[in-house]
Design a protein around this nucleic acid. Sequence first.
DNA 1: TCCAACATAGACAGACCTGTCTGTTATTGT
DNA 2: ACAATAACAGACAGGTCTGTCTATGTTGGA
Lengths: 181, 181
Amino acid sequence: MKATRSPARDRVLNTATRLFYAEGVHTVGVDRIIAEAGVAKATFYHHYRSKDDLVCGYLEGQAALQRDAVQTLTGAPLDQINAFFDLLGEVGCGPGFRGCPFLNAAAEYADPAHPVRQVVDRYRRWFREFMAGLLREAGHRAPEATAGLLLILRDGIAVGSGIDDPVLVRAGIGTALRKIL
Amino acid sequence: MKATRSPARDRVLNTATRLFYAEGVHTVGVDRIIAEAGVAKATFYHHYRSKDDLVCGYLEGQAALQRDAVQTLTGAPLDQINAFFDLLGEVGCGPGFRGCPFLNAAAEYADPAHPVRQVVDRYRRWFREFMAGLLREAGHRAPEATAGLLLILRDGIAVGSGIDDPVLVRAGIGTALRKIL
DNA sequence: TCCAACATAGACAGACCTGTCTGTTATTGT
DNA sequence: ACAATAACAGACAGGTCTGTCTATGTTGGA
C-alpha cells in the first residue's frame, strides 16, 4: 500500500478499468484481473486493500480522465457546454461504449453509503458545479437549476447511447441542448 | 413450467421482484429468494428454467405494471405525457426508489444479445412508441424525434432520482418537459 | 554487501453460487 | 380409487468468489 505508482499496479488498474467497464464490476473477479494483468495475487493485495478498493480506484481514474478532458475545452462558457455534449455524443457512438461507468457502478452498489457510491456522488457533484459555474459565467438566469437539467440530459444520453442506437441519441443532443439553454 | 400461476410461483416472483430491485440482480442469490419466499428449491426450478429466466420474468412484470399504469391516464395526449412525468417524479421521491429496474438490469448484463437485455429493449421500444403515438395524436411536428428526447428525459429523471436528491430532480421536471414539448 | 521493498507462483480456507437429484407429502381431476 | 401435478425438505456436485498465506526470486539504494 506504499507505492502509488508501479508497473504492476498500473497493469492491474488498466486491466480492471477495461474489464469493469466492458463487463461490469460484479461479473469480473479478482482472479481474472490478476491473470490478464500478469500479476501475482499477493501483489494485487499489496497494492489494493480489497476488490472494492480497486473499484473505487477505477472510478477515481475515470473521474480524473473527465476532469482532464474538460480542461481542454476553450472558448465562451456556452461554447464549452456545447463542446462537452458534442464530445459525449461522439464518445457514445464509439466502439465499446457501454454507458457511464459511474451509473453502471451505482446500479451494482445499492447501498448509498458504500465507498463506491461516494466516489460516484463526488463525480456528480463536480459535474453539476462545473456546469453551474459555466452557466453563471455566461450570465444565465438560473445556473443551478439548469445545471440540474444538464445532468439529467447527460445521464439520459449516456444511458441511451449504451443501450439504444447511439446514432439516434446523438442526433437529438443538439436540439435538446438548445431547448434547455 | 406448466402452470403460469400458483401461490408458490407468485411468492417466488414477488420476492424476487422486491430483492432484485432493492439490492440488484447479481447480489441476490437463488437460495435467498427461495428462503424468503418459503419455497423449496425443486419448486423454484419447476417454475423457472434458470435464474436468468426469473430475471426476465421480473422485468416482464415491471413492464406489465407500467403498461397498466399508463392505461389509467386520460385526457388530451399532451396532458397524458405531463401526467406520466408527474407520476415519475412522484414515484422517484417515494421510499425505496432505486432507479429504473430496466436500466439497473441492463447495467448488470453487458451482452446486448442476452435475453434480459431483449426484455429491456422491448420495454424501451414500447415506451418510445407510446410517446410518439401521443405526440402524433397531438399533432406534434416531430413526434419520433421528440419521443427520443422524452426517453432521454425519462432515463435522466429515473437515474438522477435514484442517486441524487430526488426532490431536486423532481423540481426540474416541469421545466424540462415544457422546453422539450 | 546487505537489507528492504517489490514481485512471482500457487496452495488454501471458507463462503457462496447455480443447478440437480432423491424422496416424501398433499391436492386435485377423472 | 388412482394417476398426475405441485409442493415440500434438504443433500449434493462442481464451480467461483474474495482474501490469506507460504515460500521464493529480483532489484535498487545505503
